[in-house]
């Protein structure tokens, strides 16, 4: 059986979803550095450059840059936002997207979750469950 880890955090936007994780090792930047129509980052030098986040649980450490970060919440959307730390940029993205969103976890989700893990986000009850791949 694969290992399952549950961690608790703070809900930004409610909802329950299970999907594959896409983990960004670097902060994400919006404005012109995200393409909402295609659902990927266009930020140069970024490990997720042109990697689709559509329908994935998008896990990232923190937002950076312009107020145009909210473009992550427009157009083609991830299944959920999971991030280590937040600021008004991630607030605006959650307000745009209205998809399950959580932050402020008891453990850093970027250290617990790897790309390809299956993550259940239960933002109604304030936890995520990570099923490690393999």
């Amino acid at each position: 059986m694969s290992e399952t880890i549950r961690i608790y955090g703070r809900t930004e936007w409610p909802g329950i979803v299970t999907a594959e994780a896409l983990v960004s090792p670097k902060p994400l930047e919006g404005f012109t550095n995200v393409d909402p129509a295609r659902g990927y980052t266009t930020e140069r030098n970024h490990p997720l450059f042109k990697v689709s986040f559509v329908d994935k649980v998008l896990v990232y450490p923190s937002p950076r840059g312009s107020g145009g970060f909210m473009a992550y919440g427009r157009g083609r959307l991830p299944a959920a936002f999971i991030h280590t730390e937040g600021c008004p940029l991630s607030v605006a993205a959650a307000a745009c997207a209205h998809i399950p969103s959580m932050t402020d976890f008891e453990r850093d989700p970027c250290e617990v979750i790897e790309t390809g893990d299956i993550v259940t986000v239960n933002a109604d009850e304030g936890w995520i469950e990570v099923e490690k791949r393999g």
Binding site: E29, F31, T32, N33, V34, D35, T42, E43, R44, F49, K50, G65, S66
Partner: peptide
């Protein structure tokens, strides 16, 4: 610099 290149991925 950082934003203009994002327009041309």
């Amino acid at each position: 610099s950082y934003y203009i290149s994002g327009c041309y991925p």
